[in-house]
């Protein structure tokens, strides 16, 4: 009997997939499956898995955007070639002194088996966290999260220089600026560019490899939104165990 069934199945002709409703296709896509054939008058489907890479482990706080615009950056880290044009642009645009930095590149040597490694450059900058440890730690509210944009800023005149925010930052993103007599850090170029209507940040503009994608995470038309909300894309943040809920995301290609 089963043999008969198998023969019957084999005898069926592929009737083509073009008549399947797009809703139905999408329903399968969500399961990670692609319809490749239809048999027996649309009663039987042949499907293959379409999941290419790891299923995105999207941080749990994504999809809740308290800020408008909710500034964010996605770093396509494997495209970075450490040309450091972003660092130079940042230094020039924001008058960063030689002893400090607001953004920099780290070099990863990712193990690829048997004593081998693969190079990958990893740009880092302030993550403009949703729960910034630095903001909680500051005694005088000199560093604060902008209620409109979510950018973590510093009010220079209130800074007492206790350096608690430096100790609190899990990402090493703060330094003391002797000229300002205050802590200095990345403000997504708010002061130098965004507040003057210039877009995007100096580093994103300077990047020749399209590593740094800057935009409004709350806007479905922005590239950052589309990258972060692609369920088939691996998206991660740095040191998620810190609970700071960064707004700078990492992905590859």
């Amino acid at each position: 009997m089963f043999k008969g069934f198998a023969d019957w199945v084999k005898s069926l002709k592929n009737e083509g997939v073009e008549h399947i409703a797009s809703e139905e296709r999408r329903a399968f896509l969500k399961l990670g499956l692609v319809i490749t054939g239809v048999y027996a008058g649309g009663k039987l489907l042949s499907v293959v898995s379409r999941v290419r890479e790891v299923y995105a482990d999207i941080p749990e706080y994504v999809d809740k955007y308290p800020y408008k615009p909710h500034y964010s950056m996605v770093l396509r880290t494997d495209r970075c070639i450490d040309c450091q044009l972003c660092m130079e642009a940042c230094r020039k645009t924001n008058h960063v002194p030689p002893y400090g930095w607001r953004t920099r590149i780290l070099e990863q040597h990712l193990p690829s088996g048997e004593g081998q490694w693969t190079r990958r450059f990893m740009p880092i900058l302030c993550n403009h966290c949703n729960e910034p440890p630095c903001v909680r730690a500051c005694p005088t509210r000199a560093t604060y999260k902008d209620p409109e944009t979510g950018i973590v800023k510093v009010n220079v005149k209130k800074c007492i220089g206790c350096k608690t925010c430096m100790a609190a930052c899990p990402y090493d993103m703060r330094y003391f600026n002797e000229e300002k007599r205050a802590i200095d850090k990345c403000d997504f170029c708010w002061e130098s560019r965004l507040s003057k209507g210039k877009f995007p940040t100096a580093c994103a503009k300077a990047c020749p490899a399209g590593v740094r994608i800057f935009g409004d995470l709350a806007d479905p038309n922005s590239r950052v939104y589309q990258l972060v909300h692609d369920p088939y894309r691996a998206i991660w943040v740095l040191r998620p165990s810190m609970g700071a809920r960064p707004n700078v995301f990492y992905t590859i290609n």
């Binding site: 494997d78 070639i81 590149i105």
Partner: peptide
């Protein structure tokens, strides 16, 4: 357009 850092050693390199 793949494996950028195989050839690009960067300023650090």
């Amino acid at each position: 357009n793949t494996r950028c850092a195989s050839c690009h050693i960067g300023v650090m390199g």
